[in-house]
Design a protein around this nucleic acid. Structure first.
Lengths: 353, 353
DNA sequence: CAAAATAAAGCAAACGTTTGCATGAAATTT
DNA sequence: AAATTTCATGCAAACGTTTGCTTTATTTTG
């Protein structure tokens, strides 16, 4: 059995309570005793049993992180994003002495159970949810139990009762589209995945908004959704056979971006000479591809960091205003886009900035 | 305050101990009482306080995972590998009712502290270390404290006191090299990162072994190490100016693989027509590149799963034999290699299988 | 110099479980 | 029918802390 506070007390000839107060550096203990007790603690190799402390303090200084339900390849994609978010959470937790417990479930039901265990089993003081989706049971559960939590992403409902951290996806898509418009593109396509996700809808909206503000007619045939992996080929095909085919595409995930790149490559269409690509989420994938993809950096690390900050604030003061943080996304110009000449002709001479 | 076992006991008109035994489904309790107590538990919404249980049972059913020290981009690389390992651990933990706590530290010192807290604070029953490196303080600490733990990777020392899970890197490199030899390559280069890592040394050895067994003279000028990121260009250059330049390369990380691919691309050298590439670690990166890289799948998920299995066994029976598990690596033929004709001439006509 | 204020440390209850042992009732054996 | 075994439950101690209250010793104050 390990050394307990009582062992230390006995060896130092003081009461257990005194040892406890030395640990918390209480000012009710004389420096002399502190010194003595600390010495004994070192000699004996004492370490606080956090279970016991957690029991009496009703707090474990641990945050639970709910990892997204991993369906097929969406997970692999999320992977890079998720681990960067996780790093942000880690960084903040480290700074504030919190531990991190993650869910292990791989199905929706398992994850829900994990959360129940963490929360009701008092294993964690708060929860970070990565991230919001519809028909989700976790968020309503946390709301009902009045657990401090924050969400990375935009909650589907009850937004003002929930603390969340997200990008302004509409704005980001608008920026991306304008980025292309400013480079004289006017026939700009959009490729997204599942349009039932709020994030995709926001992005489509931002895309349309940019077009409209620049006097370009919105045309639904320029907006395509890829539902199954590897379907990019078909979508690219559809674009290429169009009479007025797009000179640029805004694409909503790195994986799709690479898929599109491949499909174009296979058909001998050169990027960026013949078509420009801008992709959401700057990740290793976008940076590693040939050509390097111009992307929209969603600052995953920062998202995680802020989410963690949010919960911890909520833990320390449950009445904290449930603010939502919007992390600005930033265009990272790389090699997959080019500037067209004013008359939109297909100049082969690449004009990059 | 939440519902406790005592509240349930009172409401069900039994003793707390009875409730406890109902929870553990003890056979000393009659079905009738069980039914009654369970009903009350549901009505009241009772959930075990795992802190309290942990305290008395001296076990938390939680595993600590020590994430690799994240230096520069090595971390980003590890990222994909690490998260796949993590998924393997998750899967096993889920099956066996274990929770996962991860380290949050980003420096060696912070990580060491994290481990101390987890272990001495009795937050976890065991530890999984990802992964072995020299001058590591964590493994010696765990050995000294006699904590159940396993390592993903090959420990530097005291190997037979430690349970670890790894690939046979020598064999894998030999297989990869032979894979190329069987396709009539004889001038095969090797690119690795930091040669002070055991894993790299093993791979070089396997590479040499394959050559020797097939009567190809080992030549140190065919073996290059890339120490800083983005240095692949220089190395590729060195290879290309060689009189007898290699027709194939074995490369030790996906990131380097893509780096090499880029460098070759920039110099107009076509893969696989002019040079074949085989890369260690099948990841999203290798699968997404153009061309898709022929890789050596190190089965990261499986590594994690087995590591988890190991610790749990050790927890349940501390005298378990400290076996080490070798997960076979498997070549995944893709698009970055080709078969040469017998006479080694540079046939442009691609002959893939 | 007595009274009051302050400082330092100890006592004991509490946190919510689990579990060895004791108890009493019912069922089985002799 | 008494003695024994089995079954179901309760009692109370433990797990290792923290913390409100009390006690004792010391210092300050009037």
């Amino acid at each position: 059995m390990a050394i307990t506070i009582k062992d230390v007390a006995k060896a130092a000839n003081v009461a257990p309570s005194t040892v406890s107060r030395v640990i918390s550096d209480s000012r009710h203990i004389s420096e002399k005793t502190k010194k003595k007790v600390r010495q004994v603690m070192n000699e004996l190799g004492y370490h606080t049993n956090l279970n016991a402390r957690g029991l009496v303090q009703q707090s474990t200084k641990t945050l639970g992180v709910v990892l997204k339900y991993s369906e097929s390849d969406a997970w692999k994609l999320g992977n890079l994003f998720v681990s960067e978010v996780l790093q942000g959470i880690s960084a903040h937790c480290q700074q504030h002495g919190y531990s991190i417990m993650i869910t292990t479930g791989s199905t929706e039901e398992e994850i829900y159970k994990d959360v129940g265990r963490m929360v009701q089993g008092k294993q964690v003081d708060g929860i970070i949810v990565l991230y919001a989706k519809k028909n989700d049971k976790v968020v309503p559960f946390l709301l009902e139990k009045a657990i401090p939590f924050s969400v990375v992403g935009k909650p589907m409902e009850r937004m003002n009762e929930i603390m969340f951290v997200d990008n302004d996806n509409m704005q980001a898509a608008k920026d991306a589209t304008e980025f292309l418009i400013h480079r004289n593109h006017s026939r700009i396509g959009f490729i997204g995945d599942n349009p039932t996700f709020q994030v995709i809808q926001d992005r489509v909206e931002g895309y349309y908004k940019a077009l409209e503000e620049h006097g370009i007619r919105r045309d639904a045939s320029y907006v395509k959704f890829v539902h199954t992996p590897e379907e990019e080929g078909a979508v690219v095909e559809e674009f290429l056979i169009m009479e007025a085919k797009p000179t640029a595409l805004v694409i909503s995930t790195p994986l799709q971006g690479v898929g599109v790149l491949k499909a174009l490559h296979k058909r001998g269409v050169h990027v960026p000479d013949e078509i420009s690509l801008v992709v959401f989420n700057k990740t290793l994938i976008t940076e590693m591809s040939i050509p390097v993809l111009t992307s929209i950096d969603t600052e995953a690390f920062q998202l995680g960091y802020e989410a963690s900050r949010g919960v911890v604030e909520l833990i320390n003061n449950p009445d904290t205003f449930k603010r939502s943080v919007i992390i600005p996304a930033k265009i990272e110009p790389r090699e997959s886009h080019r500037k067209l000449t004013k008359d939109n002709s297909s100049v082969i001479n690449v004009t990059m900035e």
